[in-house]
Design a protein around this nucleic acid. Sequence first.
DNA 1: TTTGCCTTAAGGACCACAGACGAGC
DNA 2: AAGCTCGTCTGTGGTCCTTAAGGCA
Length: 361
Amino acid sequence: MLKEGTNNVGGSTGTWSHVCDTCRSAPCVLYCHADSAYLCSSCDARVHAANRVASRHERVWVCEACERAPAAFLCKADAASLCSSCDADIHSANPLASRHHRVPILPISGSLFGEPEHERVYAFVNEVEAEEEEEEVFDEYDEVEAASWLLPHPMKNDKIDENGGDEGFLFGDEYFDNLVDCNSCGHNNNQFSNVYDQHQQNYSNTVPQNYAVVPVQVPQHFQPGLDFDSSKAGFSYDGSLSQSVSVSSMDVGVVLESTISDISMSHSKSPIGTTDLFPPLPMPSHLTPMDREARVLRYREKKKTRKFEKKIRYASRKAYAETRPRIKGRFAKRTDVEAEVDQMFSTTLFTEVGGSIFPTF
DNA sequence: TTTGCCTTAAGGACCACAGACGAGC
DNA sequence: AAGCTCGTCTGTGGTCCTTAAGGCA
């Protein structure tokens, strides 16, 4: 969702608009209001750990889109800190983007880099950790998202894919968007990823080959003390590997591969906000690293060119809709005469185009 | 500074019908 | 197993209506 051509938060190392005002060699990551200076992480640690007064300087992260202004909002969906201008630009681009949950970024004080964790201001811990793990986290986003491209079974959704589909795009953009939204919830990413890996290990260790493992029931345990707004984030996760997503023989059904698609698809369209939004994605083990890389690249390329414009899935229906009589914009019943004329039109068209009617794709 | 009115933009509902799809025979 | 019928559901576009936001007096 970030602007093209900017230094995307996905770990790329593009050209930085601001270098550190102190060392002039490293890219800045923070803006210090008190010093009116852009600082890199090491300089920030050095300068603001020098004394107690300096450590109280309020700093904000630099906008990850333009890298020219202090960040004002943290977009959970994009997991990006954005300035007001970039936030407005990015999140007014389309309706989907406008629904991204953003929170104001409050100034940070104290020592952020290389200091004991207990010295951090607790209110900003999540944000700080998210930033520190930024590159790693985003790699995991892509890993999880791209994982769906690596699925070994060509289980296309018939409903979605009535017209030939999207070359194996299994769950649709909505699924991925949810996935991105959920995966962008700060420190939970690593835990989710770890759980996922744990699942894969458990499955591969206990299930014989030629069988596929499908979660029959996803445990929905919540720890009451946890301060995590799952309703806003779009999924629930209690952060406890042993409790929340524990996989036992009671929770796992073993089915023949021939039936896996049906069962898996039933999990693929859970309503937003429900806890079984993310079925464990079967990770193929037979793919070579090159295959995997190729598919990941293909996925990323497609993700880059993803558009949110209306997509016509049935050209024939569009053609019919455009020729259909209307009353105040609403479809109206056809009279017999109109039906006859339309029949003639269709016959003529059929003759003119040599028998090919409306294309369907 | 607050309040009320007007304008503008965005999004949802509505309609009929072709075609896809599953169930049953 | 294949083919048929029937009922259900989905998707399509233009217009109207509602709601929210912004501007102005």
